[in-house]
Design a protein around this nucleic acid. Sequence first.
DNA 1: TATTGACTTCGAGTGGACTCCAAATGCTAC
DNA 2: GTAGCATTTGGAGTCCACTCGAAGTCAATA
Lengths: 123, 123
Amino acid sequence: MTIKEVSEKYDLSADTIRYYERIGLIPHVPRKENGIRDFDEASCGWVEFIKCMRGAGVQVEALIDYVALFFQEGTEAARKDILVEQRARLQEQLENLQTTMQRLDYKISHYDEILKCSEKLKS
Amino acid sequence: MTIKEVSEKYDLSADTIRYYERIGLIPHVPRKENGIRDFDEASCGWVEFIKCMRGAGVQVEALIDYVALFFQEGTEAARKDILVEQRARLQEQLENLQTTMQRLDYKISHYDEILKCSEKLKS
DNA sequence: TATTGACTTCGAGTGGACTCCAAATGCTAC
DNA sequence: GTAGCATTTGGAGTCCACTCGAAGTCAATA
């Protein structure tokens, strides 16, 4: 697959994909003889994985570390540590999000009240 | 309250609080005659609100708009629209977060397996 | 053969959200 | 009154994660 196809498949700009590859998030992308990227399944898998992680706000730095460890043997524990730490971050973020959404719901219902009343007043 | 006290109370740097005030996120902070900020309850309330929203990732721009509308009458519908839109964003983010956490859980349990096996092999 | 358009690299530029700095002023303690 | 610390302003600097531009290569088409 060309970078354009991958870009469309995962809804990421080609620039972003090249950037991810450059900094080590998408390892070993195969090339044709002329140097043009020719993504195979493994590379697509990495693109999809990175997109998912970034979409949830996992830091690029942590992903760089994880991907680098992935290609060294005996680093399973270290890789797991990264995932566990990132999971904890996401858990925290999840709680923030829930609290804030409740607060927004409360405020929204408050505005609903107000708007309902001002409707009534008009009629 | 001085900015330092507010900063400690809400665990935000004084610079951040000044920045928020400057861009319009914390309106009408009272001053003493010498020009030094003297936060009252209302201002603290805004600080706390903004901290909560920012902590969940609500964009500064949306908050600026909301705060500005807050001091104009008859803008209830517009204010509500902002909150509804931001809530939708957070909902989306919540779903990303949940998907990604499940994926991390799966990967973590996979590493647990691997590490358990390599423990056994050693003994 | 000339143009069009996708691809390449490298480095620079951007946008969002802070974060820091300099210079001035003010409060408190010695 | 002067040392030392907090505060003020305005503007500059930083960090992260892209995003864009320039200059070049290559393949297909008019």
